[in-house]
Design a protein around this nucleic acid. Structure first.
Length: 330
DNA sequence: GGTATTTGACCTTC
DNA sequence: GAAGGTCAAATACC
């Protein structure tokens, strides 16, 4: 099935679910609505979403995540994926960036606490950049095979801002502050496919960003001058974790909370317990947009404790907080 | 002595 | 050949 056709099927399926939910809502507003009808509508809504999720699974579930248990060099060299890793071309590794504001006197060598333990393994002068780029990898790369790396480079425009680019995910479970601040939610449904350790770690990291440590840099930067202010943007270049994101969505989105839809724009709200509210979800747009309400609304709300993720069209999207992957569901 | 950092060399991609 | 990313020996630090 072609991508476009598949997306259309997906849209239709989700739109049907939305209409059914609207019907259910209208029935709920009636003083004497028949329970049988409500039950039927619920069943149809569930069936619709299950079908949509099934379609998503079919479209992206064929790829397998890269092995992360890597015995060090020998295996990696024979495996193109690991060879790429060794060569710095992590084509299927999740990648996201953030910008961290540091104090004027702090260098990139200064403490940049993000909850993980990093070891510097290189530094390069980058063409056209005023400042060198530092290369870091997880301290537990060898002991636990953790392939997470990050690059830190001081911004040319504003030396107090560090561009931090993360690649790969932590499989060492060494997150201290992040994990402690926001432990991953318990599995809602054991019948769902359980994430691998790697995927769980990535989800945990991302969720932790969503829920706790992340502070969205607004135009009002001076207001949080004391803090390390981060502007994250996510880049999921390939499919290794799409399955788990879908599962996460499936586990946390609760269609009965549908409310009368406002056209075109869809909102998810991230609460401390995960994604738990839902409006007018158009899944083909899921790939394109996540934005923070703080950024899009221009409000001065630096924390993300109640961050809304907006799944709308790309024009509404704040570039500081992106899943930059056009082929996410294709 | 163990661990972290520095830095020149090496490798791959473009 | 240039550039970016990584390796690994040398060095520094605790």
């Amino acid at each position: 099935m072609g991508d476009w056709e598949q997306k259309n099927h997906l849209i239709n399926e989700l739109a049907e679910g939305r209409e059914l939910a609207k019907q259910l809502q209208s029935y709920l507003n009636l003083p004497f609505s028949p329970n049988e009808t409500q039950e039927v509508l619920v069943q149809r809504i569930i069936a619709s979403y299950e079908k949509a999720l099934s379609m998503l699974n079919c479209s992206v579930g064929t790829s397998s995540p890269p092995s992360l248990n890597g015995s060090p060099r020998s295996d990696q060299d024979s495996d193109p994926e690991h060879r790429n890793t060794r060569l710095g071309k992590r084509k299927s590794m999740p990648k996201w960036t953030k910008q961290v504001r540091v104090g004027p006197g702090m260098g990139i060598e200064g403490p940049l606490e993000d909850g993980f333990s990093w070891r510097k393994y290189g530094q390069k002068d980058i063409l056209g950049a005023k400042h060198p780029r530092g290369y870091y990898r997880c301290t537990h790369r060898h002991g636990r095979g953790c392939l997470a790396t990050k690059q830190v480079q001081r911004s040319d425009e504003d030396p107090t801002i560090l561009d931090v680019s993360y690649k790969g995910s932590h499989t060492c479970n060494n997150s201290s502050s992040l994990a402690a601040a926001a432990p991953p939610p318990p599995a809602a449904d054991q019948t769902h496919q359980q994430p691998t350790q790697q995927n769980q770690s990535e989800e945990q990291l991302l969720m932790n960003y969503f829920r706790t440590g992340l502070k969205v840099l607004t135009d009002d930067l001076h207001t949080n001058h004391q803090d390390n202010t981060v502007i994250p943007s996510f880049h999921y270049p390939s499919s290794s974790n799409i399955q788990n994101w879908q599962n996460n969505l499936a586990e946390n989105f609760t269609p009965p909370f549908l409310s009368p839809a406002t056209s075109g724009t869809s909102y998810f709200s991230a609460s401390p317990s995960g994604f738990n509210s839902y409006q007018n979800f158009q899944s083909d747009q899921l790939t394109e947009i996540i934005s923070s309400s703080a950024a899009t609304s221009g409000t001065n709300s630096p924390t993300i404790g109640n961050l809304d993720f907006q799944f709308g069209n790309a024009h509404e999207f704040d570039p500081h907080f992106t899943f930059d992957n056009p082929g996410f569901f294709s």
